[in-house]
Design a protein around this nucleic acid. Structure first.
Lengths: 146, 146
DNA sequence: TGCATTAATAGAAATGGTTTCTATTTACAT
DNA sequence: ATGTAAATAGAAACCATTTCTATTAATGCA
């Protein structure tokens, strides 16, 4: 598993540092997305002297390299999470517990076509975030979010 | 036209102030989205003593009331724009000139259904931003954004 | 294995968009 | 007209994020 991360980092021309590996491990072991500060707090359990700028820098580099994903929450904070599925897909984000699930179906082939036909424009990128309540949270406190 | 805005504001239990009307006029006369600061700069041409917090407060209130729309750009700044089409729709945003066009077709009935079926979750809201190049910009400098 | 090179890091400081606070002014219902 | 509740100006605070610089660490190569 460590070997995998090392290969990934080398491909991105990033040096394999203990902190980088630890950040990847932290995100990998979470099923919810984490803010840079949350990652930092976890990282400090292993490295008492790690700085928050280091976390920001690493998260951004890893996001640039498509190793992790970056999410902007409605509160406008950045959140990052590790993403095991490298292919194009979208995310279902639970507003209650922050669990992220992949949405495997994508309707954007269709979208691209219609933007071209109807607006004569070209799609370069899109951001789709689907916010809602996951299975678990619907059971737990479904009525409070009705 | 002023009458329309007045009605809208009253429905939202917002007082009809000259600055509020001016902000609506400014956004209405723009076909691109504006940052709070850009709105403020334009507003100061009419009201030399208007403060930036006033602009933020008003934009937020108007966005809450669905009179204008709020966009988060990839650079993470807030942008607001006036939205003539009150029904549910999405936006095609030109990366070059910031023009916003409405996308009238929506594939989210389908999405909701599949989130329910496949993830057993419930969609509460979604954010879709489609970034690209509009007709005009494709013609103007199509090759530089290839 | 040791050295040179270049990236990565810590820590402090700055940045800058956004929000809060308080006194004052304004809109508007009665 | 007048009372009251909302809106505003201006200053200050906030706080997530970024920048800066000296230092440390990883990697390529002899």
């Amino acid at each position: 598993m460590l070997r995998d991360f090392q290969t990934v980092l080398k491909k991105l021309h990033l040096k394999v540092t203990p902190k980088r590996l630890a950040i990847l491990e932290i995100l990998k072991n979470e099923s919810v997305y984490l803010s840079p500060e949350e990652v930092w707090r976890k990282l400090r359990k292993q490295f008492s002297r790690v700085g928050l700028p280091t976390v920001y820098r690493n998260l951004e580099e890893l996001a640039q390299g498509d190793v992790i994903s970056k999410v902007t929450h409605p509160n406008r904070q950045l959140y990052y999470y590790f993403c095991l599925n490298p292919s194009h897909h979208h995310h279902f984000i639970c507003l209650s517990c922050r669990t992220v699930e992949d949405i495997d179906f994508c309707m954007f082939r269709e979208l691209e076509k219609r933007v071209k036909q109807e607006l004569k424009g070209r799609v370069v990128s899109h951001i789709l975030q689907v916010n809602g309540l996951c299975k678990k949270c619907l059971k737990k406190d479904g009525e409070s979010h009705a």
